[in-house]
Simulated scan of single mutants.
Amino acid sequence: MPLIAVEWVDGADQSLPLPTYQTAGAAGADVCANLPDRGEVILTAGARALVPTGLRLQIPEGFEVQVRPRSGLALKHGITLPNSPGTIDSDYRGPLGVIVMNAGDSAFVIRHGERIAQLVVAPVVQAQFVVAGGLDETARGSGGFGSTGQTG
């Protein structure tokens, strides 16, 4: 199990929980909004905002942390993360912020301390990219978006 070291950003509310798995089988650890003024962010329909978590992470080399939406917020309110999954690289040491978007049809209030996203720790494999003289042929070939679901 990888160890993720955590540090509070100056001024963060340290009474809020660190990212927490809500069940024994959870893949994602919920992370909270840690607003500097301890207030709230109002997201109108279609709006997006960078919501601070008050945290900085030290991710081991060979891993990333993916930032993903919470399904309940997405279903009930249309709250999503437009760059999902977002990636936090192992060499990043800055503050963790979550880009939150309201895809719903009414305003949504993000309150200080509210669980706004989930963090998934995943292994990373880096590849070497090389220019080739040609690529192997496949049954799909160059068929693009939606091409695998088409029949005759």
Rank of each mutant, 00 (worst) to 15 (best):
P2Q: 13
L3T: 15
A5T: 15
E7M: 09
E7I: 01
D10F: 02
D10P: 15
G11N: 06
A12I: 13
D13P: 12
L18E: 11
P19R: 00
P19T: 00
T20Q: 09
T20C: 08
T23K: 01
G25R: 10
A26F: 03
A26V: 08
A27N: 06
A27D: 11
A27F: 02
G28M: 04
A29L: 04
A29W: 04
D30E: 12
V31N: 02
N34K: 00
N34R: 00
L35P: 00
P36Y: 12
G39K: 00
E40W: 00
I42K: 07
L43Y: 00
T44I: 11
A45E: 08
A45S: 14
G46F: 01
G46Q: 08
A47C: 04
R48S: 15
L50N: 13
L50G: 13
V51M: 08
T53I: 06
G54I: 07
G54V: 07
R56Q: 14
Q58T: 15
I59E: 03
P60W: 05
P60E: 05
E61G: 03
E61V: 13
F63P: 07
V67A: 03
R68E: 09
R70E: 04
S71H: 03
G72L: 03
G72T: 09
G72W: 03
G72Q: 04
A74H: 03
L75I: 14
K76W: 01
H77R: 12
H77I: 03
H77W: 06
I79Q: 04
L81H: 09
N83W: 04
N83K: 02
S84W: 02
S84Q: 08
P85L: 04
I88K: 01
D89M: 06
S90V: 12
D91Y: 05
Y92C: 11
R93F: 14
G94R: 04
G94E: 14
P95N: 09
V98F: 08
V100Q: 03
V100P: 00
M101P: 00
N102I: 10
N102E: 11
D105I: 09
D105A: 13
S106D: 11
A107Y: 05
A107E: 15
F108E: 13
R111E: 12
R111H: 14
H112E: 09
H112N: 11
G113M: 02
G113H: 02
G113C: 05
E114P: 01
L119T: 09
L119R: 02
V121H: 07
V121I: 14
A122H: 10
V124D: 07
Q126Y: 14
A127H: 13
A127N: 13
G133L: 10
G134Y: 09
G134W: 08
L135V: 14
E137P: 08
T138D: 11
A139L: 14
A139D: 15
S142I: 13
S142K: 11
G143T: 05
G144L: 04
F145G: 12
F145C: 14
F145K: 12
G146S: 07
G146C: 02
G146I: 08
S147W: 05
G149F: 10
G149D: 12
G149M: 07
